[in-house]
C-alpha cells in the first residue's frame, strides 16, 4: 500500500510511502480523493515520513489536493519531509499553499 488513510473528525491523514513519481502519483491521488470526497475535511495532513523519493509529480499531487479543498476553505499540512523532498517543495513555492512542517 503506497498510502494509508486515517480519518479523524474534520481531518484526513494520508500517510504516504515509497517513491512518488508520475507513475505512482495516479494511484495515490485516487485513494486520497476518495477520502476527501467523502469527508470534505477542514484539514488534510500529508505525512511524507515513508517517502523515499519525490519528483515534481509530488508537487502536482499537493497542488491538485489544494484545489479540491479550496471550495470549502480546507487547508493542507505537510509533515515529515526529508531534505531532497523539501528542496523540490521549496523550488515550487509550495509553502504558499500549505504548511510545511
Amino acid at each position: 500500500m503506497p498510502v494509508i488513510i486515517d480519518t479523524e473528525e474534520n481531518t484526513v491523514i494520508a500517510r504516504l510511502s515509497g517513491e512518488i513519481d508520475h507513475h505512482t502519483a495516479k494511484e495515490l491521488r485516487t485513494d486520497i480523493d476518495l477520502a476527501i470526497d467523502r469527508l470534505k475535511p477542514a484539514t488534510l495532513i500529508l505525512d511524507f515520513d515513508g517517502v523515499t523519493f519525490m519528483d515534481s509529480s509530488g508537487i502536482g499531487l499537493v497542488m491538485g489536493r489544494y484545489k479540491m479543498l479550496k471550495p470549502w476553505g480546507g487547508s493542507i499540512i505537510i509533515e515529515n519531509t526529508g531534505n531532497q523532498i523539501k528542496k523540490v517543495m521549496r523550488l515550487a513555492g509550495l509553502d504558499r499553499l500549505a504548511v510545511i512542517k
Binding site: R29, D55, M63
Partner: peptide, 14 residues
C-alpha cells in the same frame, strides 16, 4: 489535466 506542476525543467536546471 494530468496535474503536472510545470516544474520539470526548473528541477533539472536547479
Amino acid at each position: 489535466e494530468e496535474e503536472r506542476a510545470g516544474l520539470g525543467f526548473a528541477v533539472m536546471e536547479s
